[in-house]
Amino acid sequence: MNRYNCFDVIFNNHIAQIILNRPEKRNSMTTDFWNEFPEIISKINEDGDIRVIILSSTGPHFCSGLDLSLFQSDLLKINQEQQSKPILLTNYIEILQKALNILQDSRIPVIAAIQGACIGGGLDLVCASDIRLGTKDCHFSILETKLGLVADIGTFPRLVKLIPDGLVRELAFTGRNFNSEEAKLSGFLNDVYPNQKNMLKAAFELAKEISANSPTVVYGCKEAIKFSRDHTTEEGLNWIKMWNSSMFN
Rank of each mutant, 00 (worst) to 15 (best):
230 D>G: 00
205 E>I: 13
78 I>H: 13
95 I>P: 00
59 G>P: 03
41 I>G: 01
130 D>L: 06
121 G>F: 05
22 R>F: 05
46 E>C: 08
115 Q>T: 10
54 I>Y: 11
26 R>A: 14
19 I>G: 07
182 E>K: 06
81 E>H: 12
145 T>D: 10
53 I>S: 08
156 F>N: 07
57 S>E: 00
218 V>T: 05
20 L>T: 04
199 M>K: 09
83 Q>T: 12
157 P>R: 08
25 K>N: 14
62 F>Q: 00
216 T>E: 14
162 L>S: 09
121 G>Q: 01
128 A>S: 15
249 N>H: 10
138 C>M: 05
109 P>A: 05
152 D>V: 08
196 Q>I: 05
63 C>K: 01
185 L>F: 05
158 R>F: 11
150 V>E: 13
149 L>A: 11
35 N>D: 10
224 A>K: 09
44 I>A: 13
113 A>T: 13
180 S>F: 11
165 D>Y: 07
111 I>D: 01
171 L>Y: 02
87 I>W: 03
111 I>P: 00
99 A>P: 12
17 Q>C: 02
218 V>K: 01
47 D>F: 01
161 K>A: 12
157 P>I: 04
15 I>F: 12
220 G>E: 12
93 I>M: 07
56 S>D: 15
225 I>P: 05
48 G>F: 10
196 Q>R: 07
247 M>K: 15
93 I>E: 06
150 V>D: 14
248 F>W: 07
20 L>M: 15
50 I>S: 03
99 A>R: 12
88 L>V: 02
62 F>K: 00
91 N>H: 08
225 I>G: 03
95 I>R: 14
163 I>K: 02
46 E>M: 11
120 G>I: 01
171 L>W: 01
184 K>Q: 13
94 E>I: 04
84 S>G: 00
125 L>W: 12
71 F>K: 08
189 L>H: 06
177 N>M: 06
174 T>G: 01
128 A>F: 14
197 K>Y: 09
177 N>W: 00
142 I>S: 03
190 N>D: 04
199 M>N: 04
21 N>V: 12
81 E>P: 02
244 N>P: 00
192 V>I: 15
142 I>Q: 00
242 M>H: 13
197 K>C: 01
208 K>T: 13
25 K>I: 02
101 N>G: 02
194 P>I: 11
30 T>R: 08
218 V>M: 10
176 R>E: 03
21 N>C: 15
79 N>T: 07
116 G>A: 06
211 S>C: 00
120 G>M: 00
64 S>E: 08
179 N>G: 01
104 Q>F: 12
5 N>C: 10
48 G>Q: 02
178 F>I: 03
215 P>N: 02
101 N>C: 04
168 V>T: 14
236 G>E: 02
34 W>G: 03
124 D>Y: 11
115 Q>D: 07
74 D>F: 02
102 I>W: 09
176 R>L: 02
